[in-house]
Structures are given as structure tokens and as C-alpha cells.
Design a protein around this nucleic acid. Structure first.
Lengths: 188, 188
DNA sequence: CGCCGAGTTGAACTGAATCAAGAAACGTGG
DNA sequence: CCACGTTTCTTGATTCAGTTCAACTCGGCG
């Protein structure tokens, strides 16, 4: 729980009362390895914080699905577009390892926005930083080759490669596992 | 100005006092056709609202630059990632036609956040909807072929094709003008 | 021990990039 | 308002990165 508070504090100074409102809504939940946290077609009900575990976002496909995101401990996780619009999710969320989350519901978060002075500031800054991440990703997808994306990913998030099968990383950078294998061979 | 108020009202109910604070900061500015609104390497100082005109976001390249966004009247426009982080912008923003903007500075917006009750709610909802747009775009780039992106763009924003040269649209959907020309030929 | 999924490697194929050239549309100055 | 030059769009030929299909290796696990 203390880690969540620290994350919120990176956005803005947090009063004790506001933290009490927020933290009182959080519930702990555990998922096994390869647990489905959100199924495609369902509406995201939760904003969650990862205490431990690694999470993957993907669109299930008949032959090898399309992975487009990973999330690590001490970050928020949510199918945030589905969560915000409260409409069915186009993709699926699963745990790649044993995972423990703290989470609150959409309605609870709306309550936090309405009853705390600080809720909207944190919500704004969180949405802003998620927006910046997606902006960066857009330029990466349009502007870089698969090889450049691989190299950048490797230098920015080396820990990714310790915990995540290459086939998911291949999908994330937009190529098949075979193509990634050849990229890796080429650059060694 | 009234149009700006209407846009803000789509986010949340707006008190007269809050609107006065916000609107008092706005300054009108005019750009000619093909005016550079923000140069690559500069830091975005403004959040702007388009009264009239069409705007393009792009990364300048030696041979044909990379266009990744268009903005139309009655929308906010800003190199929002540069604006939020107050760091130099990776890309450039220009007017495709004669353009009139209403804009306020970064510092003025921070004042609005601090002095109005509603600023952070609007800022949050704006960032949230921008995030949702980028999320959708990410899935489109990963999940769809150039041809699908073209067809979707055509059905979602037909007005785009009346005002914007095909070569920019080609770049936006991630192919060369030649490839787009062939796509168009194929599907007619 | 044997199986299964992950990763690698090879060969054939394909969609889009690149290079090149011509046609059409646009706008600017006389 | 027309003429010329520039930009945009199209079409063709060639090249290339990445896909697909297939076979093989490796390591972990029941």
C-alpha cells in the first residue's frame, strides 16, 4: 500500500485525509500465472496497482495473438480506454506470472474525484502521462523500423527481456517471432 | 469564443466565474496558409483552440516528411506532449490553410488549474479523451492494413479528403503516396 | 524419458518502398 | 484570365523487409 502512496505522491503532494479516502476503497486480489484479468468484450471495472507480477495486453487472434503492452510492479494497470468510456474492451489483459493487485472500481474512483480536493489533479496527471506514452509509441510505430524499435526497447527497458518471452516482444515491435530472431542474429 | 465555452461544457458544467478566469487568458492569433505554428526543437508554450483553419502535425524529413495528425476547427490543438513536459518538441506543427487560433500559455493554464474549481476536471477529461484517441490509433497501426486504415479514415472523417493533399493522408496511414494511389485504384 | 512450447533457420512468396517518368491540378505573376 | 512553373498524383519496373510454411534444436516439466 505504501508503494501506491509513493506513486501518487509523484503526481502531487497528498494530504492524509485524501489518502484515507482513496486507500479505503482499495481491495487486494491475486491472480495465478496466465490468469485472465480482463476478457475481450468485457468492460473494464477497475483501476489497479501492481504489487507484484507482470501483465500483458493483447488482442487474441486465431494464429498467435497481437501483444501491444506490458506492465510491471509499482505501476497502474487498467484497460484504461474501456475503463474511461465504460464500453466493452477490444483486447484482453492477462498475468504472465503470479500477480497481486490492489484495485478500486470505476464508481469508487468517481467518488474520489468528487469528494477529495486532490483526485482530479492526480487523475489529470495520470491521464497526461499515459497520453505522453502513447504519443511516443505512435511516433515509434510510424517512424522507426522493426530493428530500431527492438534496439530502443532493449536500451530503455532491458528488464523486459528477462521476464517476457521473445514472441510477445516480437509482436510488440510489430513483427513475427521469425523476423525478430533474424533481427537479433543480424545485430549481434 | 462561444465555441470554446461549448467545447468545455462537453466536459463538465461550467460556472460563470470559472469561465471568466479561463477566457480572460485567451489571446487571438492569426496564421497564414503554410505558417509554422511550432518549429521542431522548440518547446510548446500554448494550448490553442482552432476558430478556423486546418492544422497538420509532422516530422520534417529530407525526402517527404512524416505526417501523423490533423486538427480541425472547434478542437484544441497543441504539441501536447511537449506542452505537458515543457521539453523541446520532436515534431513540427503547421497550418494547411489560413488559420485563426485562441490560445493561452502554459503558465496561464497552471493558474487556471490552481484558481478554479473546475480546471482540473476539464484538464483530466481532456487528457483522458486524448489518451483514448491515441490508444485507438495504436491499435489501428498494429492491427490493420494500410488499406483498412484508409477505408476507416474515409468513413470516419470524410471531410479530411476535401481539404488535405493525399500525400499527407498517405503518410498518416503509414504508406508512401505511390502505395496509397494503388490502394485507391484497387478499391474503386 | 518423452513431450511440448519457444526459439532458430531455410526457402519461397508478397506487400510496400524505391527509383523513375509522365499527367493532372494548382497558384502566381504578367 | 491566361501561361508557365511547381507541386501532386499516377503508373511502371525493380528491390527489399518481412510473412508464411516447414523443419529442426533446445530446455523444462509431467
Amino acid at each position: 500500500m505504501e508503494e501506491i502512496r509513493e506513486l501518487l505522491e509523484t503526481f502531487t503532494k497528498l494530504e492524509e485525509d485524501d489518502w484515507k479516502v482513496f486507500s479505503s476503497k482499495l481491495k487486494k486480489i491475486h491472480f495465478p500465472k496466465r490468469g485472465i484479468i480482463l476478457k475481450k468484450g468485457q468492460t473494464e471495472k477497475y483501476l489497479s496497482f501492481i504489487e507484484s507480477g507482470v501483465i500483458r495486453f493483447y488482442i487474441p487472434k486465431t494464429e498467435s495473438d497481437l501483444t501491444f503492452g506490458f506492465i510491471f510492479p509499482k505501476e497502474f494497470v487498467s484497460a484504461y480506454d474501456s475503463f474511461l468510456s465504460q464500453t466493452p474492451c477490444q483486447y484482453q489483459v492477462e498475468s504472465l506470472s503470479e500477480t497481486t493487485l490492489w484495485r478500486l472500481t470505476y464508481q469508487d474512483l468517481q467518488d474520489v474525484y468528487e469528494t477529495t480536493g486532490i483526485g482530479n489533479v492526480i487523475g489529470r496527471k495520470n491521464a497526461e502521462s499515459l497520453f505522453m506514452l502513447k504519443s511516443k509509441r505512435e511516433l515509434s510505430l510510424l517512424n522507426e523500423s522493426a530493428e530500431e524499435r527492438y534496439l530502443n526497447l532493449f536500451s530503455e527497458r532491458p528488464n523486459l527481456f528477462e521476464q517476457i518471452p521473445l514472441k510477445y516482444i516480437a509482436s510488440y515491435i510489430g513483427v513475427t517471432p521469425q523476423a525478430l530472431s533474424r533481427i537479433r542474429k543480424r545485430i549481434t
